[in-house]
Nucleic acid binder design. Structure first.
Length: 272
DNA sequence: AAAAGCCCCTGGATGC
DNA sequence: TGCATCCAGGGGCTTT
């Protein structure tokens, strides 16, 4: 479920609650996508120093360089609970602080919690090393984007989803950004002109920024750490709107399939 | 190096 | 009501 906006909304909703908090212990549920990489009870007694985001990962920094990497996968969400109820069947990780519990809920268990130190240990460095540029950072320039896309003959939608050029753009926001940029999702990335790449860069930044401001998109069950749902889904132009009229030209939004994922676009507004 | 498929897992919606 | 099938905000790994 969570793409960059949902992860960033989650980060913002937990940062003030947990930074400065002291770890009392952890509780583990079922295994997630990756092995933990160590016993997270080593964090007991330590203080949360920062909460960062890299792509769709959340990075919790602790004393002495210890780092907890969290990923929400497809169905994950984090809650901060001052009076935590008994954990449910899908609550797979609790970071227990003196002031409350940070709880990961993830029915499908595609999410992950990985402990590391110094940011250079095996799993963590492997996972983070292949990530592309942050779309809302200063390094996401038209020149770099254009240059990276030139060597990719795959469709632009699939290149965006791969995350090795630019991070954080998932299935919803890829369709949305391509609509805003007027680019058909099946177009080969290498064949997009610099001018249109610039337009796509702006569209990605625009849609992600507005989605964050709206608290993200809640299609099924996403919520921030307070339990509040997002509402950007009401403003989606094409995602999930197959058969419905295009909000820009009145034509019909169509759905197709790319790499086992659904893609939505308007034939009129996205001719090439 | 890049691209295409497969797979991890659970639950909800749909169809017969 | 019961059961099978398909689909879902991700992404690493293996094979071409």
């Amino acid at each position: 479920m969570p793409e960059l906006p949902e992860v960033e909304v989650t980060r913002r909703s937990i940062v003030d609650r947990i930074v400065g908090g002291e770890v009392v212990g952890v509780r583990l549920g079922k295994p997630l996508r990756w092995p933990l990489g160590g016993d997270p009870n080593v964090l007991t007694g330590m203080t949360v120093e920062a909460v960062r985001r890299r792509g769709k990962y959340l990075l919790l920094d602790f004393s002495d360089g210890w780092l907890l990497l969290l990923h929400l996968g497809m169905s994950g969400s984090l809650r901060f609970l001052e009076s935590p109820p008994h954990p449910g069947a899908h609550d797979h990780f609790d970071l227990v602080l003196t002031r409350g519990v940070l709880r990961l809920h993830d029915p499908r268990r595609f999410g992950s919690v990985v402990l590391t130190r110094g940011g250079e240990s095996g799993t963590t460095s492997t996972l983070l090393a292949r990530l592309g540029v942050e779309p809302l950072g200063v390094d996401f320039t038209t020149d770099r984007f254009h240059h990276a896309l030139k060597s990719r003959r795959a469709s632009i939608k699939q290149v965006l989803l791969a995350g090795d050029v630019v991070v954080g753009v998932g299935n919803i926001y890829a369709s949305e950004a391509l609509f805003l940029a007027g680019i058909r999702p099946t177009t080969s990335a290498s064949r997009i002109s610099r001018r249109r790449v610039d337009r796509l860069r702006l569209a990605i930044q625009d849609v992600l920024t507005r989605a964050i401001a709206s608290g993200g998109s809640t299609l099924r069950d996403f919520s921030d750490s307070d339990g509040s749902a997002g509402h950007f889904q009401t403003g989606l132009m094409v995602y999930g709107r197959a058969g419905q009229p295009c909000r820009q030209c009145g034509g019909t939004v169509v759905a197709t399939r790319q790499g086992q994922r659904s893609t939505f676009y308007c034939r009129e507004c996205q001719k090439a």
